[in-house]
Amino acid sequence: MFLWISEYFNCKLKILYFIPYRIIFSLLTSFFINLFIIPKLIFYFHKSKKYQIIRKNGPINHILKKNTPTMGGILIIFSILISIFLYCDLFDIDIWYIILILVGYGLIGFLDDYKKIRYKNSCGLKILWKFFLLSTIAVLIIYIINHNNYSNNIQISIPFYSIVSYKFNYLYIFLSYLVIVGTSNAVNLTDGLDGLAIMPIIFLSCALGLISFFSSNIYFCQIMNVVFLKNASELVILCSAIIGSGLGFLWFNAHPSQIFMGDVGSLPLGGSLGVIAILLHQEFLLFFLGGIFVIETISVILQVIYFKITKKRIFKMSPIHHHYEIKGVSESLIIVRFWIISLLLLFIAIVSLRVHINVS
């Protein structure tokens, strides 16, 4: 918006054309929106008695969280959107893909959280309806992205290998679908302990922001072996908005948490990071960047498959963070160690852009 105003009035706000300023302002704006408004949101939820619904079959110590407000993700998404509208170039079509996923998945998450609170159970939306709605929006975005690319050849960056050209077909649509819906649900599964999901989201946003910066510069593209994207610098500003919002939310979500993000936060955050990865042609790298989300998801899949086959369990409870809880590991220790793993996987992912293994 500031770009439009400065261009229309030819005023001194043209300083905001300088990318580093917009990155900093975007981060600080989303941070302070959360910092100042979340306490009011917490007060409102306590007054109206809108609390997190605790799973009956969850870890016993989670009963202590029963009076903790949820749906803090409303403010996360609101602050990101404010920063986008203030500092991003709204003529860039890529920005609108992220806005669509934030709003669309945010509404689905809101409906899911509302039903849990309204009917006082942890079921929320029926699984089939939830996946149908998530899938519909994901397929719509994939179609629009590829319709606007005007090309049948897709360039994809392969970790530890190189950039390869791939013909657009149903296999690529399926891959993109898995990236968006899979990341969205993986973040949702990980969001089970205080601050466990939001810090890896911040790390992942930092990495995608860095890759966006590399991708917008032809010189850095050759050094880091990423796909050149002329307008990728706008995605840096968007990632900084997610980082700022995440930090502002973490201020109140750190253990012991004063508020949870709920599905209204986890679904759109995961989905938006998936879309950014697709726009940067880093679909495969996302598996490293979001490694902690992958680990959590795989633990659930393995648990379900193994139980159906043997009627026994691999883990005491899935996702895997609950397994360690039941084993007696303190919540804060689990959270910090998962953060460390997430950061290490991020470093490996960044290194993989430059290090190539000869497979010939």
Rank of each mutant, 00 (worst) to 15 (best):
S212I: 00
F288M: 09
D94L: 12
R118Q: 10
I163G: 01
F110E: 02
Y166F: 08
I117R: 05
P39D: 04
A277C: 07
L134D: 10
I341E: 02
F85V: 00
I335D: 02
V139F: 15
I173V: 15
S360V: 15
Y170Q: 13
L353V: 03
Y97D: 05
V355T: 09
L189V: 14
L75S: 11
L193N: 01
I101S: 02
K47N: 11
L353W: 05
G182F: 13
N217M: 08
F287V: 12
T310S: 07
F160A: 09
N146Q: 07
L111M: 13
E331M: 14
F91C: 14
K66S: 08
T297C: 08
F168Q: 05
I237Q: 05
G195H: 02
S79L: 07
I54Y: 11
F25N: 07
F228A: 01
S342N: 03
K311G: 06
S215Q: 06
S215Y: 06
G265A: 01
L125N: 04
I335N: 02
G262K: 08
M71Q: 12
Y143S: 12
N61G: 10
F288Y: 15
G182R: 08
S205D: 04
G265I: 00
L128A: 10
F347V: 01
I117L: 13
S352K: 05
N188K: 08
W4G: 02
Y114H: 11
L193D: 01
I320F: 08
T70V: 04
G72K: 02
I223S: 03
I202H: 03
